[in-house]
Amino acid sequence: MIIEVNDLIKRYKDFLAIDHLNLTIGDGELFGLLGPNGAGKTTLVNAILGLTAVDHGTINVFGEALSTSERAIKKQIGLVPQDIAVYPELTAQENVTLFGKLFGLRGEALRKGVADALEFTGLTDIRNKKPSQFSGGMKRRLNIACAIVHKPRLIIMDEPTVGIDPQSRNYILESVKKLNDMHCTVIYISHYMEEVASICTRIAIVDKGRIIAKGTQEELGRLIEDDQVVSVGVTAPDYSIIEKLKRLPAVKDATVDGHTIRIVLSERKLNAVLDTFLEEDLTITKIETNTPTLEDVFLTLTGRALREGAQ
């Protein structure tokens, strides 16, 4: 096992950030941590890296407790923080070199590590430029290069695609898969369901400090396989219909998104739903039935959309 977390509890005064959390991540996995903002994902990462003291529980990384061999463990981990954490006054190459030195690399290993990291992230040609001259996507790639210069066994990526264009996002997602193909274990943290769904081999859904579901995408889908998701287009959505729909025995959840009302049904019984629309005298423009996605799994398990955040 690369990571074993047992019965972890972390409190910030009265706020329970991690609530009796258990987690194991195996060697070579591309593991997704999915959850809304404030769910406890970053706190969990901080605990794994020893950056925050925990109130209860144990964490083993590479089979060892962090407290006993912190430096040796950290030498094998690369963290890609959520915010860009590079020095703006240093060039891309100088940034990667400095972090390489701080990971303990010297001489030829350092030179090769820097060259490989820049090559991997596609920054070789602009290695002598400063981050201030970079686009958002290039800065994100440099953020990654600084974390992989020492060729770590475990890479933790915390929302590495926030605020970048689709092209850069695809580049980064492809890079993550390549890293995993190079036998590197990756923990990919995001609240973008589609990213996690597209690259991760196993996923844990985190909410309110707890893992509410984990498994492969298929395993998670099976949690609500009997459910049906129906999208009903209406000309003028009336919010009062949501309450009426939620009162129906077959409806697990109902939300409004523009002119579309999305309904999760526990049984494939559409009649009562359509009757409600007719009672409300709403004009239906389209009806679609969908296979449940990770978003639907999250919605079903928590009653909230992923991007509603911690509210």
Binding site: L51, R71, A72, L79, P81, Q82, D83, A85, F99, L102
Partner: peptide
């Protein structure tokens, strides 16, 4: 207070 400090704390330094 900066993301760099956060990254530094994660390093074996």
């Amino acid at each position: 207070l900066s993301p760099i400090g956060y990254r530094i704390r994660s390093l074996p330094v």
